[in-house]
């Protein structure tokens, strides 16, 4: 499995191909949402909703042999695309790796100006929640 840094580089170069065209970038992000694995309907609970997102985002995580496995869904396609990017970078890694991951691809892509401030706040909330899960698993592993 590639390092977090390498996957981020991959994503950055994919977005570079799209250039400055905001429209195709947004279409691309929406298409990315299709990469998410099916999310169990029974997990679409109030408890699994990430606070601080304008749209609804459900996130769950489980510890699979010491690595964090995330699953997520959203009621909006752009948000699904964004979270699929985060999952691509952070999925199936140790809590340690996730906690210390520096997600610089978001700034390098210029995501803020693509998705606007409301969604950027939501994206930050998603990252925070993913890291909180990792922290919880790490605490459990160390116990």
């Amino acid at each position: 499995m590639s390092a977090i840094k390498d996957i981020q580089e991959e994503i950055i170069s994919e977005f570079e191909i799209l250039g400055d065209d905001k429209e195709s970038t947004i279409f691309y992000i929406m298409e990315l949402g299709n990469n998410l694995e099916a999310f169990p309907e029974s997990e679409k609970t109030e408890q699994n909703i990430i606070k601080g997102c304008q749209s609804k985002v459900w996130l769950i995580a489980d510890d699979q042999d010491g690595k964090v496995h995330y699953q997520a869904d959203s009621n909006t396609d752009i948000t699904k695309g964004l979270i699929s990017l985060l999952i691509r970078v952070l999925n199936n890694r140790t809590p340690q790796e996730i906690i210390h991951a520096e997600l610089n691809f978001i700034d390098k892509i210029g995501m803020g100006s693509i998705i606007g401030s409301q969604r950027s706040n939501g994206l930050a909330a998603m990252i925070k929640q993913m890291k909180l899960y990792a922290l919880a698993f790490q605490t459990k592993q160390n116990a």
């Binding site: 429209e23 970038t25 947004i26 304008q54 396609d77 752009i78 606007g116």
Partner: peptide
């Protein structure tokens, strides 16, 4: 099949 927020953001891109 689409969320209004997505539609709005796509229109904004235009």
């Amino acid at each position: 099949g689409m969320h209004p927020f997505d539609v709005g953001q796509m229109l904004d891109a235009k």
